[in-house]
Structures are given as structure tokens and as C-alpha cells.
Amino acid sequence: MAMPGFLQQLRDAMYPPSRKQAILGLFQDAESAATAGDALKDAGVPDTDYDFLTDSPYPEGSLGEREEKHRLYLYPFIGALLGLSSGIMITAMSQVAYPLVTGGKPVLSLPPMAIVCYEGTMLGAILFTVIGIVFESRLPKFVLGLYDERITQGFLGLRVNAEPEQRYEVIQIMNSAGAVEVKTDQ
């Protein structure tokens, strides 16, 4: 279905159209997939241009893949700071607005304020963590790209975004490494 013009423009602005083509190699075992990954690296394909697709998390570095950097751990701190600030503001302002001395305690007492501040901190941290997960995982995507259902049965996928001139070489590498099937998005 064709996108309306302005949506297409917006999409192009956010995700500039790439010349690269997606190629998916399907491997029956992890060793073959890792071999294909090494061969791609040797052939000069940048390691940011290929990803292993697996049905369960493999140990770090077991497939020779790149180290992924993310900033997920920042999100809860930002949320917690915002939540804490809101909690302090709400409690302090309401106690100053309605001063009521109870049990001889100061109007601005920290122990009862701590409850609301803690709650605000936690709510902010939780909310921002979930936002961070969605953002950092690049979710959601409503159109599934190149994939193969056999990955759910223990096969490994090696998805490469290759320049058109590298296409043939990438397919060759995958086949040499023992790919069961190689798919392209064209």
C-alpha cells in the first residue's frame, strides 16, 4: 500500500533511503554462522552491517559479533531524578500551603515527605526505563523485515546490509560457510 506523500517524506527524512540490500543467510548450527561472520569481516564488510538473529541469547562474543553499546542504564537515573524533584516540590508546596503542626513536628518534616518522594522517584525510574527499552530496542516496528521462521526452531540467521556491488560476494561467503538457504529482499 502506497504511503501518503507527506508520510513518505517524513519517513525518508527519518530513515534516508539506502542503496543497501538485505541478505539473510540461514545456518543450521552456530559454528557455521560464526564462520560466515568471520569471512564477512575478512571481506571488508563493516561489522555494523551484519547481525546474527537467534532464538535465544548466546553468550557474549560467542559468534564473533561486535560489541553493542547502549545507554539503557541512563534512563532510570533520569526518570528517578525527575520523579524525586516532583515529589519534593509537591510535598513541600502542599505542607507550606496548609501548615498544620502535628505532634510538635516541624511543618516541613522530612520523614513523611520521604514516602511521597520515594514513590515519585520509583514511578519516574520505572516509566523512563520502559521508554528506554522501547527506544533502545528500536521497537516497535510494524512491518517485519527479512526473517525466516526456521530461526524459531534453532537455526541462526545472519542478516547483512550489503552494498549492491558486494551482494554476490556476500551470498558466496554465506554459501561457502554452509548456509542452508540465502534469502534477499528483492
Partner: peptide, 9 residues
Amino acid sequence: GGWYGTKRQ
């Protein structure tokens, strides 16, 4: 939607 099982994910 969009879950492929990449290393990053």
C-alpha cells in the same frame, strides 16, 4: 513487532 533476536535486542 520488530523483534528479530539481534544481539542488540
